[in-house]
Design a protein around this nucleic acid. Structure first.
Lengths: 199, 199
DNA sequence: CGTCTATTTGAATGTACTCAAAAGCGGTGG
DNA sequence: CCACCGCTTTTGAGTACATTCAAATAGACG
């Protein structure tokens, strides 16, 4: 149970896609819980079950995968108004493949799997909302996949800076490199070349 | 309007995720239309609006993007029991970024955007179904993205063969190369090395 | 059998990676 | 205020994975 005041960003976010009645809203807030994390804390750990669907009120997180060689691959960042978690783990309540960690002090609204199922029954509009959200996320992910297949590292970096100028300033460069799928050294070289070319 | 007989694969597919009443089923079939395509025909063309969500009854299709250099990048294949189209274009009814083309004679069930919206209102269970389907597609896509970020071309190819043995046999090798994000020449070399190693 | 398309092979090239070391930067304590 | 520490970024040399281009070979279909 969370107050409408605290949950305002979530309510505004939802309102951009579907209309919620007052009744719907109170059912939603009844199932939400609010939790704060410190910088560095894990919201999901590889191997654990992802217990929550998380809406970001404030802060910044990364979702990443650690491969056999111990190398970290950043799958996505999440900032204000984004949802995060390990969706595969959450849906099937199976061990997570990915980690979600806070890059800043972070404030989340959390929904458990069971509560969300109940909400879907009580408030079909919310099921509609999540259908729309996931569809949009899917479309964005395809676009990213295509970028990885058809663009050079340099072009991908330029695209990233245009698309997420806010994230670019909040996150260390070596993480952006990991997100783009290149080494930190190589991204550094790309940047120095771009700087030269622009001057 | 399509007969339950023809739509049986779709009905069985849906039944794996949600229960549909007889009433629901007839509303669904009332909005479906059945269309056959020849090998080589386009279901969606880059620049056109994607008018349908397509369920594959039989056949095989590829979704691909043509970049500025004229190079083709295969985003996905679709075979029996898969959905295909350009989702971004379909949702917003905006020009498609991608092409969908038949690699074999193909039989589809099609739903227009407007009809699907009506269906969502009439049959909330179908909205639920599509939420689940898209979530699963999203999870699969993340897995593919991680594979592209963390595996070598060789490992990606081996993974592909395990995961889609059926597709591997139906599709020319140079398209698989494009799907994996490597050149056809390099995939050929990978294959010859694998053949050597196994003998 | 001939033609068209798909696959293989090889040499030269390039993009991005590894490893190692140096330089920059922010905070903390003396 | 400066010195030091840890963490991030930069730079460079050598290397590897994958590409390009060109040509040869293999398969499919009429």
């Amino acid at each position: 149970m969370v107050s409408p005041d605290i949950a305002r960003p979530l309510l505004e976010h939802i309102a951009r896609y579907v209309p919620l009645t007052g009744e719907d809203t109170s059912r939603l807030l009844a199932k939400a819980s609010h939790r704060k994390y410190l910088k560095g804390q894990y919201v999901v750990q590889q191997g654990d079950v992802c217990r929550f669907e998380n809406f970001v009120l404030s802060g910044c997180l990364k979702t990443f995968y650690v491969d056999e060689g111990g190398q970290e691959h950043i799958i996505m960042f999440a900032v204000e108004d984004w949802w995060t978690g390990d969706l595969g783990s959450f849906l099937n309540q199976t061990p997570a493949q990915y980690n979600v960690q806070c890059l800043e002090a972070t404030s989340l609204l959390q929904f458990t799997h069971d509560d969300l199922e109940v909400l879907y029954r009580e408030v079909p509009t919310l099921e509609r909302f999540f259908r729309i959200i996931v569809q949009r996320a899917y479309v964005a992910l395809v676009r990213r996949l295509v970028a990885n297949l058809s663009l050079s590292a340099r072009e991908r970096y330029m695209g990233f800076c245009e698309q997420y100028p806010n994230i670019e300033r909040r996150v260390p460069q070596y993480m952006i490199a990991s997100y783009l799928g290149v080494t930190k050294e190589f991204l550094s070289k790309i940047r120095s070349e771009l700087a030269k070319g622009e001057s």
